[in-house]
Write a protein that binds this DNA or RNA. Sequence first.
DNA 1: AATGAATGAGCATTCATTCAT
DNA 2: GATGAATGAATGCTCATTCAT
Lengths: 190, 190, 190, 190
Amino acid sequence: MGGAQERPLRADAARNRARLLDVATEVFTTRGVGVPTEEIARIAGVGVGTLFRHFPTKEALLEAVMVRRLEEMAARTAQLAAGADPAEAFFACFRLLVEQSEGKNELAGALAAAGVDVHASLQGPTMEIQGRLGDLLAGAQRAGAVRPELGLPEFVALLAGTGRALEQLGADPAPRERIFEVVFDGMRPH
Amino acid sequence: MGGAQERPLRADAARNRARLLDVATEVFTTRGVGVPTEEIARIAGVGVGTLFRHFPTKEALLEAVMVRRLEEMAARTAQLAAGADPAEAFFACFRLLVEQSEGKNELAGALAAAGVDVHASLQGPTMEIQGRLGDLLAGAQRAGAVRPELGLPEFVALLAGTGRALEQLGADPAPRERIFEVVFDGMRPH
Amino acid sequence: MGGAQERPLRADAARNRARLLDVATEVFTTRGVGVPTEEIARIAGVGVGTLFRHFPTKEALLEAVMVRRLEEMAARTAQLAAGADPAEAFFACFRLLVEQSEGKNELAGALAAAGVDVHASLQGPTMEIQGRLGDLLAGAQRAGAVRPELGLPEFVALLAGTGRALEQLGADPAPRERIFEVVFDGMRPH
Amino acid sequence: MGGAQERPLRADAARNRARLLDVATEVFTTRGVGVPTEEIARIAGVGVGTLFRHFPTKEALLEAVMVRRLEEMAARTAQLAAGADPAEAFFACFRLLVEQSEGKNELAGALAAAGVDVHASLQGPTMEIQGRLGDLLAGAQRAGAVRPELGLPEFVALLAGTGRALEQLGADPAPRERIFEVVFDGMRPH
DNA sequence: AATGAATGAGCATTCATTCAT
DNA sequence: GATGAATGAATGCTCATTCAT
């Protein structure tokens, strides 16, 4: 499976890397990807040089943020998929992914805009998530809980769209819940 | 009330303004809001100075693009709302607005990111659209075609979300149609 | 012969461009090519933006400096070549080119280091000069004033080498003259 | 006089120092002095820290490279000067020094650009070489093989210039040889 | 009114040098 | 002594905006 031979990384270096990733995730998500690298480094309490030692490009930093998010999602998805009832697992997972992905849209857009094969390192996690989602969807469809004509692409599109709808709304939980009701009811067989 | 005292604008100036708006709409929608002002001017066949005479800020240009889109939407909405069956009008209008708004998300985001009271000049068209949409929604709900607990904010959120979902999908019409089915079925009373 | 369609350039713009070229020539020659672009702009009394408007890259500026030098050389060479006695013209021209090229070595090196086909725009002037030099050399050889086995490459190498030798020496004219004597005597038939 | 009190240096440290010097010589000569210190360290198989322990500045490294080259030259010069015929020794030595110094020009330039008293540590070897060269030159002049009016400075300038001329040429030996012929013939009494 | 040259703050990135491990 | 992570000043370049022509 290739993969670079990566030296374990000294404790402090690992801490800095993690801190940078945390700060970048937070900052890119809340303030957009236009935030200067220097500010990210400053908030993380390191010099710019350190940021660029860990992520040779701003784009590489964006990518790393995305990859981590995707990996977290994959992990959560795996947990839920292991649960009992397929239908329940499906809807719980949908909810989870939507809530996890708030603010992620711009990141993905920036990455897409940045260039050609950015997806190189995103392929892995993306494929993994999509595989799990496919299983989940198939299980729910077999259980008769989801319209059989929906494919994985539509499912993913609905995830993104539902996330977008929630972003539009404020923090008040009632309207948010109503969005979920609409989407969940709509996905059920008619 | 009533806006600034605006001199009627010479014919060529009006043509330039319109051309800039067209180009900006096209370019911002397809290539993102990061495109330099100079390029917009160049494509429109005018100097940058002219662009800045008509729109004193890049942000003002973004705003004008949005305003025009909103106004067009308001007009279309009005046409449809005037039609016969409330339920039919509601769903037709939803579809129309969603399809009209593809690529608009980033614009709105950029505007939101740009600052506080950008909405000043968007208030007018937005209010008008929202008013019409409210009427449409109320009509459809009275006709029993839409769940009564959905408010205008949820409706607007669903518009944005459905647009986002379609962006995720390719040009193939079948999956796109399935998204509409899910959302429309979900909005109906259960 | 192709060539970009170049608008005549406004008077002030032309002045700035010329000034930047003058300053860059002076500064690169005396202090090396490592001098920051900002400083060149500052000395020329313009902003960095102006520098980059005229020369889209630092490398492009270096190239322009070289091109101008080469063109001047070509012009001088042409003048001398038009003169009477071939042998006399040859030696006068050699002297002139050597003296003109002091400090040019580093420029050429930087350009060479910068990349592959930098020579694109240098080809023209270079070819022109080399053509004239070839004529000059052939004339001098026909007149029996220069060893017949010397080719154009050796001639050019001797130009560069003599320039380098003079750089090594101070401003005192006597030793400089002795270098010319050695080289000129060495080029004569033996 | 006498230099700093220098502890004999542990075996591995000495090996590292030598390796760094070798790598730096190779790299600076072939790729220019712009190569980052980190890369030199990497090629030498040590950390940057080690490089800076041995050479407190990049400039110090450049200087050490030069000093070693000069010392080697001095040694070779001494060998040749010890040989029989003064004229023969002179020309052989000239040839040798020229060939040894290819690629050295940029180093010297960088050093000169670096500042004030760089020459401090170069004085020693330089003086030694110049002394030997002076002897060689004087011997050749006494033997009537070299024009009597040439001084040491001109001789050194011719060395540098001939090196430069050869750099201009490719690897083909015939034109290179013709350069030597020109210079050698030019140095002989006329 | 239109033009496009000029401006300069701002940004991503590099690299010599330091210092904790 | 060796290592390489951290530092941050410096650099080339961009782009929204202004203003002389």
